[in-house]
Computed example of a mutant assay.
Amino acid sequence: MPVNGWDAETAVIGLGAWGSAALWQLARRGADVIGVDRFAPGHAWGASHGGSRMFRITCLEHPDLVPLARRSAQLWRALEHDSGEELFVRSGGLLIGPPDGPITGGTLRAAEAHGIEVEILSADELGERYPLHAAVPRGHIGVREPGAGIVRPEASVRAAVALARSAGARVLTGSRVTDLVAVPGGVEVVTATGTLRVRRAIVTVGAWLSTLLPRLPLETVRMPICWFRPATGTGGDGGDDSAGSRDSAGGKDFGLDRFPVFMREAGGGQVLWGNGRENGHDVKLGLEYGGGGFRPMDPEDTDRSVGAEDWTELARLLAVCVPGLDPVPARVAVGLFSRTPDGQFVIGSPDGDPRLIVAGGCNAHGGKHALGIGEALADLATGGETRMPLDFAHADRFPA
């Protein structure tokens, strides 16, 4: 029942990676909070899916992201402890490319500025230690970050929502929010089935943010994600029935230990990313900067069909960079993310109005920061300030 005309102090709208973390953080503080989502927790319609997301501390996208990543790592351990699930797998990570390139150069600058432990490998050393990466040019290097690894997005979302519920949060799923109306002292959250009145709303709807807040310069982008299996004759499927062959077919040759999470400059401005088999998933790979399947997309378009344009450019790179994989993917999926003009997040209250807190513009690299951002959103909702330096991501940085 509403109290003094309000259904809750805070509503978190959108329970993906960022929203579920905010809901968990608010509920564990004893806040009066309600979470709203049009889908079930851990769904595959936005950006928080795919079985794994890269985690690294050496954030090359902005220097102020390093403290946020460090805090997220701490909170993932807390989420694992509270949920009893393994959600963060440290495998080490590789950043490969020319020393002055955007990937390895940016990684080295972040490591030096923040005192992050890394190991520099020559092309020859990469070939010896990680032979599944082929044809690394002699002038390129590998930067290995021992603390990097993968986080499991769907499992993390479900764990955060479950813990929030157990701490007293209310959760409404199957509820599409169609409008947000500022009223004296709060916000009306309009859904297809009714209206919620709350003191403030945290809006973390990912690819749908521009539909609720069209003033923000956000673009929804379609991103293909592919999974590959070892090629026949490389220790993958189709070998004889010996114990060694069965081990390889089970994925050990391309397991996370031998093929850890990575980003690699592959020439022509393309960056290849991915990670080895783990937790029942095949080798996951994709492109960082476009490709045939990347294009703006209406988030309300439910057509997630895939075609050859979603993987042919990627397969061309694999033939050179990772020749041990079958060039035809075993599975292809489509994710959506929101993109900003400067490639940075949008976090804060537009026009300084504390009734509305937005968080979006993940630019396809927000998964690793999810728990730190959730904590920051809870801080904004309860005290108006964050413990992390997030001024670079403020919603009012764009001209009206």
Results as ranks from 00 to 15, higher is better:
Gly97His: 09
Val358Ile: 12
Asp253Pro: 00
Ser248Met: 12
Asp342Gly: 01
Arg199Tyr: 01
Arg246Ile: 03
Asp32Ser: 00
Gly244Phe: 15
Arg199Asn: 01
Pro389Leu: 13
Leu380Lys: 07
Trp208Pro: 04
Ala11Ser: 06
Leu213Met: 15
His133Ala: 10
Gly185Ile: 01
His281Gly: 04
Arg144Cys: 02
Gly361Ser: 08
Gly348Tyr: 09
Glu154Phe: 13
Val203His: 11
Val136Pro: 00
Arg199Leu: 00
Arg144Ser: 03
Arg109Ser: 07
Ser349Met: 13
Leu317Ala: 04
Pro99His: 04
Thr107Asn: 01
Ala207Leu: 07
Ala231Cys: 10
His394Ile: 00
Ser166Lys: 09
Asp37Gly: 06
Gly383Tyr: 07
Gly101Phe: 08
Gly293Trp: 12
Pro137His: 07
Val271Thr: 14
Arg246Gly: 00
Ala78Met: 09
Val12Cys: 02
Ala359Lys: 00
Pro389Phe: 14
Val322Lys: 05
His81Gly: 10
Glu188Phe: 02
Thr302Met: 01
Asp342Tyr: 05
Pro350Gln: 14
Thr232Phe: 11
Val33Glu: 00
Ala78Val: 14
Pro327Val: 12
Val157Thr: 10
Asp100Trp: 03
Thr232Arg: 15
Leu314Tyr: 14
Leu180Trp: 15
Val66Ala: 07
Pro217Thr: 11
Thr211Lys: 15
Glu112Ala: 15
Ala113His: 10
Trp227His: 14
